[in-house]
Design a protein around this nucleic acid. Structure first.
Length: 553
RNA sequence: GGCCCAAUGGAGAAGCGGCUUAACUCAUUGCCCUCUCAAGGCAACAUUCACGGGUUCGAAUCCCGUUUGGGUCACCA
């Protein structure tokens, strides 16, 4: 007669520790009441997803605002999908968004008393727990081959039964320990499954911080807890790790709701208190078929956090945008606080929408312009340098020609009450400011025709532009403008808007038309920063040189 | 298909039985101001809350059904 203990010993002869040992090694955290311990638990399977950033932001926020702990745990149990180095990159990118773990996996190192924080290094911990389960008869080795599993599934489908390894279909759960021992001794491969005592006809109450209370069918599947490679599955690792790492609140995507019965059961059978759960809605996008679907890394550029980094959206803009999705009252709050100190905002789960929001690029751009507009010229220089060095060589070289010149340009109508907001991302700066640089302007003029308002003949344009050479740049802005108005008037361009509107036929145009011609001449574009400052930066000589260039065309 | 969740404008949403002729923000459109933008100011944009029933003196709010959308059913997480 082979007992459970003997079987457990046969499977895990090297495991000497007990659950009690683990409980002692990982004692309750000594935190003030109300302090939440949260975790972000990514798999090193690729780059940081926007949805993961969203989740980690919420985890981080909840821990920080409660005086708790936020840690990162690397879930690298799927060795087949693992991408080398992606764990480090995940942490690097998180950091760019101000999400820095208090403990756990830090990329190149680990920190904290509840580690290791990399699941593949926790194999012995899982084995201790599984050995215990084996001893209690709550787990068993399963020798089913993929073919057998497929057979079971086919049979279930043919009979319109729920697919899965459960009840009578869980054929190896009925083996005697003798039979198990024999197969193991024969070297037959196996996994360890949890022996479910649930019935899917029973409803169990579950609780979610966002969705409230509801009922789900009890789990009756004998789920795999230890794969044949000796590593645990997500469900089991979740129970063990979040128990021994003393997580108070598990915050994860809503795709996990369906497996909640498994987790509830695992915690119950292990005799542990389950953590609180918050299942976050997923960020969506309208798909090709017109329906909503999850942001897809393969289909949607904005699904990868690197996309925003590469284009140079400021990290706080993305975080602010994500927070508006997370908490509906955040927007009003951040407006009141003039887009500053968002760390003071108090997040709450019940202000969270239950439905997945559509990713709104336009709104992100709004936040981005707002934030970039508030930076000082020094900050802009630093940010642009930092960004372009990594992602935009062309811009990097341009800025490095002359830092002071760049600051002068970028500072036009900045650092005032209502600053300009025409930079929506750092990556867009090059196109907006390149005309300031003589060689780039010349190169452009050489290759491209300037497009003036077709209302006016080329002769008119030349007449006006040429007259602009007389503009006095030593005047202040108002004086300069009056100067331009006067010149315009003398050429038949009304400086009196009302007079012009009352009798448009009496004039060639308005001062606005004059300004536009000059602007296009000097900047090649219809839109540019404040013309007065543009001209001051360019200097009288360069302005006139450009005018002559255009006149000669 | 089974199970679970959800449904307010172009988007994010407030709303928790009477204070709602549905807040706020983005977007869009018009007007004012204006050298272009930006900013600012003023308007417009859901006569109605997916639909149908019910409860109630009273429903976007509660209940039921329908529809639609999302999630999930692995030795992936």
């Amino acid at each position: 007669m082979v007992g459970n203990k003997e079987l457990a010993e046969l499977i895990f002869p090297e495991v000497k520790e007990t659950i009690e040992d683990l409980e002692k090694r990982y004692p309750d955290r000594n935190l003030k009441s109300g302090a939440e311990v949260t975790r972000f638990a990514p798999s090193p399977t690729g780059f940081l997803h926007t949805g993961s950033l969203f989740t980690s932001m919420v985890c981080h926020k909840v821990a920080k605002q409660s005086g708790g702990i936020f840690y990162v745990r690397l879930e690298d149990t799927d060795t087949k999908r693992e991408i080398q180095g992606s764990g480090e990159q995940l942490l690097d990118q998180l950091k760019l968004f101000g999400i820095v773990p208090d403990e756990g996996y830090l990329g190149n190192s680990q920190k904290g008393d509840y580690g290791p924080y990399i699941q593949s290094q926790r194999a012995n911990i899982y084995k201790v727990v599984i050995k215990h389960l084996l001893e209690e008869g709550k787990a068993y080795p399963d020798f089913a081959t993929p073919e057998e599993l497929e057979e079971i599934r086919a049979k279930q489908e043919a009979n319109k039964l729920t697919p899965g390894y459960y009840g009578e279909f869980a054929k190896y759960r009925f083996l005697t320990n003798e039979e198990r021992k024999e197969r193991i001794l024969n070297g037959q491969p196996y996994v360890i499954r949890f022996k479910s005592n649930g019935n899917h006809l029973n409803k169990i109450p579950v609780s979610d911080l966002i969705r409230g209370d509801f009922e789900i069918a009890e789990n009756d599947l004998d789920i795999v807890i230890l794969k044949s490679d000796g590593l645990p599955t997500y469900h089991f690792a979740h129970a063990c790790d979040d128990h021994f790492m003393r997580t108070t609140t598990v915050i994860r995507g809503e795709e996990w709701i369906a497996s909640l019965p498994i987790h509830v059961q695992l915690f119950k059978e292990l005799g542990w208190t389950a953590p609180k759960y918050a299942h976050l809605p997923v960020i969506m996008k309208i798909g090709e078929n017109g329906n909503k679907r999850k942001l897809s890394k393969r289909l949607d550029a904005e699904a990868a956090v690197s996309f925003f980094l590469e284009d140079g959206y400021p990290s706080d803009a993305l975080i602010m945008y994500l927070m508006t999705i997370a908490n509906s009252n955040f927007e009003e709050w951040i407006f009141e606080h003039k887009f500053e100190h968002m760390e003071d905002f108090v997040f709450s789960f019940d202000k969270m929408s239950l439905e997945g929001a559509l990713f709104d690029m336009g709104k992100l751009c709004f936040f981005s312009r707002e934030i970039l507009g508030k930076k000082t010229k020094e900050e802009m220089l630093q940010m642009t340098l930092e960004y372009s060095k990594k992602y935009n060589q062309k811009l990097f070289d341009l800025v490095n020609r002359d830092h002071e010149y760049f600051k002068e340009i970028i500072n036009i109508e900045r650092e005032k009450e209502n600053p300009r907001k025409d930079y929506e991302k750092l990556g867009g700066i090059y196109d907006i400011i390149s005309f300031f640089y003589k060689d780039l302007y010349d190169a452009y003029i050489k290759e491209n025709p300037l497009v003036f308002n077709e209302k006016f003949t080329l002769e008119t344009v030349k007449e006006v532009v040429s007259a602009m050479k007389k503009l006095d740049l030593s005047l202040d802005e108002q004086g300069w403008f009056n100067n331009m108005k006067a010149i315009g008037d003398s050429l038949g361009f009304s400086s009196d808007r009302k007079a012009y509107k009352a009798n448009p036929g009496a004039f060639k145009g308005m001062t606005g038309d004059v300004a536009e011609m000059l602007r296009i001449t000097l900047t090649t574009r219809k839109n540019s920063p404040n013309l007065y400052y543009v001209m001051r930066i360019l200097g009288k000589e360069e302005c006139n040189r450009r005018i002559d260039l255009v006149l000669a065309k």
